[in-house]
Design a binder for these strands. Structure first.
Lengths: 206, 206, 206, 206
DNA sequence: GATGAATGAGGGTTCATTCAT
DNA sequence: GATGAATGAACCCTCATTCAT
């Protein structure tokens, strides 16, 4: 077969796959993973039922594909952060604000999928559940890297860095989720993050 | 029918119901809500398939019953806390440690169900999802009550109490979950909670 | 549960199973194995679709059950034959006529299933194919037992007993099948078998 | 279009058709008719899915084409036999050995298809089933022609020629099948056929 | 009230067939 | 003419729910 032909075919196939992925995102967000039928997805994608099975083995597979795509883009963005460590308390605070704000904005881009994913993924099966935990662990690791450095450099209070990192991630996670769900109104993201970071850096002490 | 007879019948029925609830807890914990069949539950409870439907309308209903039972016992324990507010920074810190430790221990009693519940409930349906949010909001409210009081009394730093309360609950939630899942090893619960509370009260500042 | 109750239940279940087996026989005979849907069988049996799956895992399983039943009854009848060996040429001839006639009559009882079975079984899968071969081999074995004995006793021509036994079974098989299919008209079974046995004993020689 | 062009096209089409037929033979032999998908055939033939439908209407059609080809070549070879009838008992015996050996060798050439065909064809549908019967009937007819002649000429025992011809074909059929399946080891085809023919001519009588 | 066999609607999946390229 | 992606009818199978005992 001609190369051009082959290329066109591949393109058509890719488009179909993309249509399915995008449709699935929409439907999962609307109805939740467990309440979504394959027929809902293909209807949304305007393709035949069989077309779904040419591209994915089952519902779990398309959810996994969306997850992989999401995780990849997330790690791409936050992996590099570990390269530049802050050099002072102010730096540290600023970097924290930046990172959390960036993360929130990033998640906001895929808001629908993100919210669906964190709600549904733990309930899909053990494997998925684990994977969600791993993502969080990545962020705990990153937080701990910064914190260890800050303690070593002497501009952060000595503490159990692991425990505190877990706490930081828990704080951030709930904050962002509440914000994504519009539960925290009347507050700009920037301000919200600053409040939170201030709490983390200063505590409740006078 | 004689009263004695009627009483015996009622008793038998209650026992069946309890057997089903306890079986459901076990099976939900083992397999997750969505991956559990009615037939799994009745098998575990050693009763007939039809017996399930004499006691609950469907799977959702038995999960809801478990949830109600759980929430009730939780609120019973933590509702009264709002009656005694701390009078000093030290009091506040101590009360926080006590409350979080107590909560962790309480949740640990029903560990299996608790972990299953927080994983699965958000994925069951909108209503359940909301109810999980409400529980958390109860704790946010409680945290805010204390915090508002502390700020008003002048022994806590002025801050956006709502935002900080959310952060506190996020911290606590992740901490306890990690502990329940045995992800945090080598640290006694008391110590763990103290580390976390210290972080909350002192921040990272030197 | 009471024993009586348990017994009644079992009886009901057995009846359902029997209804399915009998329906399957009818439908397989009418439409052939490969052209039969589960829905055809349950319709013929007047039971729900799900009932089929409570009793058999799939179409192959019910065909296998019919086969097992059939083979069992067949072997029960012909196994004992190996105990009384003929003592003379006449005995041998007479026993052969008896055995083949009996076999034909036996197969005629389940005519529909038998014809379907020998047509379809080899095409179901390797395992079934093998099993059909094994049945034939049983008869080859029996024929050889008689023949070996007759040669040893000196009232049959010396020959390659294995090859000849195969030939005998081939002969008998086609004969009976043609008769079951009413392809051989105007000839009584007894006469038919005698003609065939004469051929086997006397050959074509003058 | 030029004639040359047209010819080339026709040639290409023929090659494709041949490739499909040969692929189908292979796949049918390997997996059986019912267990073969169109996609298996086109994959084996290394052509596109649509190409199959330009050459055959469906799976049955390609199986029928193979069958027609096979039957044609078979009849071509055995039709002429009816022209030279044996003139003596010895001739008759010799001709029988020759014919059966030749048939076995012929079938051995297409061993895979032959075995598949006789196993699967009866299970395809009524029409196919009938056609298999017809082939056998051809051989019965041929056998009867010879036998009638031999009886008329007085060098064969008087018998029911139809019944005996059926018996002969049954014998031969099983024999050849067993041989093709390598179930009869340690015996040369020639010897095997001679044993069988001896049995047919001499019987078991001393 | 308890039972568990029976039910059948509903969803998953396959694969022969079509058709735009 | 050849291609292979797309199609959807058709069938399999599960499992929540019913109901006769």
């Amino acid at each position: 077969m001609s190369l051009v032909r082959e290329q066109k075919n591949q393109e058509r196939k890719d488009n179909t796959r993309k249509a399915l992925l995008s449709a699935a995102t929409k439907v999962f967000a609307r109805q939740g993973y467990h309440n979504t039928l394959i027929s809902d997805v293909v209807q949304e994608a305007c393709v035949g039922q069989g077309t779904f099975y040419r591209n994915f083995t089952d519902k779990r597979a398309i959810f996994a594909a969306l997850k992989d795509e999401f995780i990849l883009s997330l790690l791409n963005e936050f992996q590099p952060m570990s390269e530049h460590l802050p050099e002072s308390f102010e730096d540290y605070r600023e970097a924290s604000v930046q990172a959390i704000t960036k993360l929130a904005r990033k998640l906001d881009e895929n808001k629908d999928f993100v919210m669906c994913f964190f709600k549904e993924a733990p309930a899909v099966d053990k494997e998925f559940s684990t994977e969600v935990a791993l993502i969080n662990d990545q962020f705990v690791k990153l937080a701990k890297l910064y914190l260890d450095h800050a303690i070593a450099q002497g501009f952060a209070r000595k503490c159990n860095a692991h425990v505190v990192s877990e706490a930081i991630v828990g704080m951030g996670q709930r904050m962002i989720m509440q914000w994504l769900e519009d539960k925290i109104k009347d507050v700009e993201l920037e301000h919200l993050v600053e409040e939170m970071v201030d709490f983390g850096f200063l505590g409740l002490k006078l």
